[in-house]
Amino acid sequence: MFLYVVVVVYYGSIGFCVIASTVRLIKLTSAPLHLRWELYRSSSIYELSDWWNRPQVTFLEKMKSAVLDIIFLRDFYHRNRGFWYFLFLFHLGIYLLILWHVWYLIVPLIVKIRVEPFWDLLWGHVATAFAFLGGLGIFVRRMTDEDLRVYYPPAHYVKWAFMLLTVLGGFYAAHFDFGAFIPTLEDAKFQVYPPNSISIHLLFSSVWLIYLPYSHILRLFFRYYHQIRWDDVPNVRGSAVERKVEKLLNQRVGWSAPHVPHGRKWADFPSEREQEPEG
């Protein structure tokens, strides 16, 4: 019975994660085109005369910057070094653990390559150690550093404690229940009779899969790619941007202060010379 619960919860959480992430992605990508409000790290195209005739920042350049930021947490490195050591260690551990799971669970389904189990286990343990030590460091600093404690929601301390428990559970399952042999998804015994430690680890992982769509990972991505930060794409006559702007300017204003032309279209009111008298 317990096994069925595990299977339902685990696969259910995967489904939930996929659906909820998609819903959130649609919500964020379908947001109306907003006014430009970006920030710059260094010189931009606006340093040039007739900048509208110059080459724009390419998608690849933006992508490179985003990938380096996300993998190395560069902003934390520059702005909050003391915190970065633990954050980076934790994230490095998590990335290595994800790759490890992919390596031993999924890769064997595609290619028949296995290495010595010792190396498999070492990879997993080192990644787990990084994630645990990093997570512990974050947890302790969050509790002891006065600045990091400010406004930190109490529920998030529980989140970190649970994260450490999940990581420890994973270590236990891999080390004591698998020992020298790590099964793949193809191994029938693993599929039918997973040890309890694995089942519990799967349940814990399910919680994280449910949480993932609401975590900061998705939002971080949008910091870069949805005209938030370095959006040098100008509104050119006849462009898709212009068509979107025209559509937005045809919406009616819903605000109600005395100087606001409530109910009129954005496209109409700016041409008025005289303001409505203040009420």
Partner: peptide
Amino acid sequence: NWTFWQQLLLSLESCVRCQA
């Protein structure tokens, strides 16, 4: 609030209270 809805939403949701 089409003019700033997206940035507002992300700013409200993204803070991890690191106080940088």
